[in-house]
Amino acid sequence: MNARRLSCEEVIEELFAYLDREVNEALSAEIDRHLEKCRDCFTRAQFERKLRAKVAETANVSAPERLQRRIKAVLERY
């Protein structure tokens, strides 16, 4: 993965895998370099990154009291 520069289309194609840390180190470094220079792709990457973080936050929910009592009962049973 050297010499040839990635096109914007190639970066966008791999963007989610890159954000998921599912591309190899060489490709990841290549995408990093592209994002440092390409405003459009950088803006897109930032948007997807922020949206992804917001999706991750959807699991931040308070457990209902009823569940807490139920778990307490489970632990006391043993």
């Binding site: 959807t58 699991a59 931040n60 929910v61 308070s62 457990a63 209902p64 569940l67 807490q68 778990i71 632990l75």
Partner: peptide, 13 residues
């Protein structure tokens, strides 16, 4: 379990 309760529940939800 107590520390992770909210996140366990949130993920399950």
């Amino acid at each position: 379990v107590s520390r992770l309760m909210d996140r366990l529940y949130g993920t399950a939800l």
